[in-house]
Design a protein around this nucleic acid. Structure first.
Length: 436
DNA sequence: TCTGGGGTCCTAGGACCC
DNA sequence: TCTGGGGTCCTAGGACCC
């Protein structure tokens, strides 16, 4: 039986989330900005039509924004994460096998559904796709598109078609058209649109005369494997309908956990760098405990602002191995500050510090060390301390209880000038409806 | 003045071992 | 004068994704 994979993807996800609770934004040009209100990370169709590219710095389009009345919002990740959970829960009802691929998209395995004697009932499958769209629209209030195909790569491509070509009304199944029509379709799509083919590889492919998706599909997988990599070979096979990528319905534990931010204003003194490093290590440690892992090493990273070409530039990173793997905020912070001390140089204006927890593992494999001075009683009470910390911060809000080393002034904190309320996760920020 | 954050996988090359 | 070879592990860096 041939496989059917669907890729369901929200349209302009962050912008659509904002519109759910602020309908005045519907039909208006809207962008959502990154942390520090730096760059555009989501654009409404109206903004895309004005030619604003993903990742454009906000300050560069001030004029355009003024002329067209573009509304810019700071990102509200709490809201987006909550709506994402609602979408995923809704979509889980359509298939026993779901892979949540990113905050706004998931794969669903529809194999065996709408099968009739002799094969797939394409019309029924497309109806099913419409049902998915309608239900997510009613239950969560967000617009999605559905792409279907016999491999993940084809489902991704089909989703692209569903989004770009209005005649399909948001649902496209690659198998719904004839082989000849498929060739025509693929010939009209640039090779860079394929999932896994980025800017660099697209350029190199074009130098070899491979311009369209059709060119890529019909290229020789073995020879491209040699000049590129096994990744590209798999992409070609997937485009031909030969499945190389499985649906991962159980999310594997993260192999590394990062936390980094560009500062609200450049930082010159060591005290503030240490405060930020402490804060980010604390966040990373919370995520670490949430997934039930321990870290074997902490990496610290600092850098100046690369866009300020006249400023002296510096960047450095160091990895501090831990004697025994831990999920204890205090131990992790200590290692991070130790690392920071090693790479911190005076005389620079720092823009960013980042923390990465590495060598993650399940805690059961904890190996006692020859010079391990950990007192089992202390170990136990520290565990209790960490879970209490997490419980309070979960209930009362992040940062309610924190290390004094995070500081109080926090001038380095990110800027967020126009953030919408956390409509769905904070009692004091609930949406209010007025009756007239 | 103002330019994000968090991940994954693959490969090449060096270190090391026998 | 003559100076191996094969395998594994680790890391850094590049490319990609959203």
């Amino acid at each position: 039986m041939s496989r059917v994979i669907a890729l369901v993807d929200a349209n302009n996800f962050y912008v659509s989330c904002e519109r759910v609770f602020n309908p005045k934004l519907v039909g208006r040009p809207v962008v959502v900005l990154s942390n520090n209100d730096g760059i555009c990370v989501a654009r409404s169709n109206e903004v895309k039509a004005l030619g604003v590219k993903m990742g454009t710095p906000w300050f560069q389009i001030q004029d355009l924004a003024g002329r067209h009345g573009i509304v810019a919002l700071s990102s509200n990740y709490t809201l987006y994460a909550d709506l994402s959970n609602r979408i995923m829960a809704t979509l889980a009802g359509f298939s026993p096998k779901q892979e949540v691929y990113s905050i706004d998209e998931c794969f669903l395995d529809l194999t065996g559904m709408h099968h009739r004697m002799g094969g797939i009932d394409h019309a029924a499958l497309i109806d099913f796709g419409q049902t998915i769209r309608t239900r997510v629209g009613r239950w969560v209030g967000l617009p999605v598109c559905v792409g279907m195909g016999s491999t993940k790569t084809l489902a991704k491509l089909a989703n692209h078609v569903a989004k770009k070509r209005p005649q399909f009304s948001g649902v496209f199944h690659y198998g719904q058209i004839s082989a000849r029509e498929q060739n025509q379709l693929l010939a009209g799509i640039e090779v860079g649109e394929v999932w896994g083919v980025g800017r660099k590889i697209a350029e190199r492919l074009k130098q070899r005369g491979i311009h369209s998706v059709l060119d890529l599909r019909d290229a020789d997988p073995k020879s491209l494997r040699n000049t590129f990599s096994v990744v590209l070979e798999r992409i070609i096979l997937e485009l031909r309908g030969e499945s190389c990528l499985d649906l991962e319905d159980i999310a594997p534990a993260k192999q590394q956990i990062m936390c980094s931010r560009t500062f609200g204003e450049l930082v010159t003194n060591g005290k503030e760098l240490r405060e930020a490093a402490t804060a980010y290590t604390t966040r990373a440690a919370e995520k670490l405990r949430a997934q039930g892992s321990v870290a074997g090493a902490v990496q610290v990273y600092v850098r100046t602002n690369p866009f300020k070409e006249r400023d002296p530039q510096y960047q450095a990173a160091v990895t501090i191995p831990l004697i025994s793997p831990t999920d204890d905020t205090l131990h992790l912070v200590k290692a991070a500050l130790n690392g920071l001390q090693q790479i911190h140089r005076q005389g620079y204006r720092y823009q960013k510090v980042g923390i990465t927890l590495l060598d993650l593992d399940a805690p059961r494999s904890r190996q006692m060390q020859l010079f391990d001075d950990a007192d089992p009683v202390e170990l136990h009470s520290r565990k209790a301390l960490m879970s209490t910390l997490d419980a309070i911060n979960r209930q009362m809000g992040t940062g309610t209880l924190r290390l004094a080393a995070e500081g109080y002034g926090q001038r380095w904190k990110v800027k967020s000038e126009s953030k919408s309320p956390c409509y769905t996760t904070r009692w004091d920020e609930l949406a209010v409806a007025y009756a007239r």
